[in-house]
Design a protein around this nucleic acid. Structure first.
Length: 423
RNA sequence: GUGGGUAUCGUCAAGCGGUUAAGACCCAGGGUUGUGGUUCCUGUAUGCGCGGGUUCGAUUCCCGCUACCCACCCCA
């Protein structure tokens, strides 16, 4: 009972500043790129995901948190973000807005999987969706946004891998060629790959088993089978990325597990955070909106795992600014001093300073100790002497120097000397 | 769903069949009457994830369960 459900994590105050840091940075990057925030519900009708994500995907087959509400409708906690944005885009007929449409969001997602490093049942991701453009400029911008964001927050290890998985037409040709190539070696494949041979032979290409790795040497690559249009698009993407100064490598092994992906597929991967190294993954989904019953609106986007990002920042010792400590801590002795302290406390706060004072008086020593632990920049001492002289003692907690200031001038003096950048 | 690993104070952790169950950090209090970060004292597990078993005796051995972690799968 006193335990968070498996695969979930509390984010406690001592780490929240890391979250707000990346959240602010992501917002800022999105602003520069012209992506507007969109917020959608945590749950959707289950059909949205079975239609959008793909009925035969792992996510829909065995990972969704689905339940019937009291009306008997099946609802599902969102396992990813794109389907909801596509749904909202359709529902509110946003395709009637000037196109393209660019959306950004931060959401929690839910998937019933066995937790491990970098994988939780409730996890959080940043995402963007660029709808209404089939030009590879859109893909390049989406990728550049992710690359920029990562660079801005000081993360350096992930490398960008891009690939084209073609459209439905060219994928068929590749699948057939792949099966033909592997058929004679089928028995030597690992068990999961034997299964993949029928269901999705493309997946064999990124199998980690050394045996399979050996067997697929020389196998026909998707890139060799994509149609002229897709090939041209891929060339255009690479050109755009180069022009934007985004470093990448082509990796024919990048596949997407969600049905809606077409053409562009990409990942930012790092080996520094365990087996789940994909910090950010995305691609183009030209058929999704149509699949959901809307007009033929193309799209491209990504999801970026916040837990994985933070894991990476920890691993890289990326610098995240600590929150500011208190500006002033009021140390008092006696009831009369308490009243004077409260008055000063209110004054300081109304001037925008973070000021603190403690309840039932600890010893002087105790109060100073608290001031120190809070990281207060100065302490204000109010005792009998001070009340009599109508002066407060202001002590600089860093230098240790202290001086007396007229009671009426105390707040101004503190504002002048102890506010501003610190921490 | 399938492997493997681990479970001793808030945290890290010693302990290897008989101990008053180390130590460190953190936390609380104090080192004479109004000053923190240093230093010095003092205090803090009748308890070793839970349930069985073996034994004269179990935190230490065995079995089961549970939880967490890592990996497969898949993905963010």
């Amino acid at each position: 009972m006193t335990q968070a459900p498996k695969g979930t994590k509390d984010i406690l105050p001592d780490r929240v500043y890391r979250w707000t840091f990346v959240e602010n940075a992501f917002r800022e990057t999105c602003r520069r790129y012209g992506f507007s925030e969109i917020r959608t519900p945590v749950f959707e009708y289950t059909e949205l995901f079975s239609r959008g994500v793909g009925a035969s995907t792992d996510i829909v087959e065995k990972q969704m948190y689905s339940f019937n509400d009291y009306d008997g409708r099946s609802l599902t906690l969102r396992p990813e973000g794109t389907a909801s944005v596509a749904r909202a885009f359709l529902e509110h007929k946003l395709y009637a807005d000037p196109q393209p449409s660019k959306y950004a969001y931060e959401i929690s997602c839910f998937r019933h999987e066995r937790p491990q490093k970098g994988r939780q049942r409730e996890f959080h991701q940043f995402g963007v969706e660029y709808l209404g453009s089939s030009d590879m400029l859109a893909d390049a911008e989406v990728i550049a946004l992710a690359a920029d964001f990562l660079a801005d927050i000081g993360v350096k290890s992930p490398s960008l891998r891009v690939n084209s998985i073609g459209c439905t037409a060219c994928r068929g040709g590749h699948r057939d060629a792949l099966r033909a190539f592997l058929l004679p070696k089928k028995d030597e494949l690992c068990d999961t790959c034997k299964d993949r041979f029928d269901k999705n032979p493309m997946r064999i290409l990124d199998c980690k088993s050394p045996v399979c790795q050996e067997l697929i040497k020389g196998a026909p690559l998707m890139l060799d089978y994509i149609c002229d249009e897709c090939a041209e698009a891929f060339e255009s993407l690479k050109k755009n990325l180069n022009a934007l100064g985004v470093a990448f490598e082509v990796d024919a092994g990048i596949v997407r597990g969600l049905d809606y992906y077409t053409k562009t597929a990409f990942e930012f991967v790092s080996s520094a955070i365990g087996a789940q190294g994909a910090v950010c993954g995305g691609g183009r989904y030209d058929r999704l909106i149509e699949e959901l019953g809307g007009p033929a609106v193309p799209g491209v986007g990504f999801g970026l795992g916040i837990e994985r990002l933070l894991l990476l920042m920890d691993a890289e010792d990326a610098c995240i600014p600590l929150p500011a400590g208190a500006d002033a801590y009021i140390v008092f002795m006696g009831e009369e001093a308490r009243a004077a302290g409260l008055s000063l406390l209110k004054d300081l706060r109304s001037r925008g300073l973070r000021a603190e004072m403690d309840g039932p008086a600890h010893s002087l020593k105790g109060q100073f100790k608290r001031a120190d632990r809070l990281g207060a920049r100065c302490a204000v001492v109010i005792g009998e002497d001070e009340l009599r002289a109508k002066e407060f003692v202001i002590k600089d907690m860093v230098s240790g120097e202290q001086r007396r200031v007229g009671r009426a001038d105390a707040a101004s003096a503190i504002l002048r000397e102890f506010s501003g950048i610190h921490g």
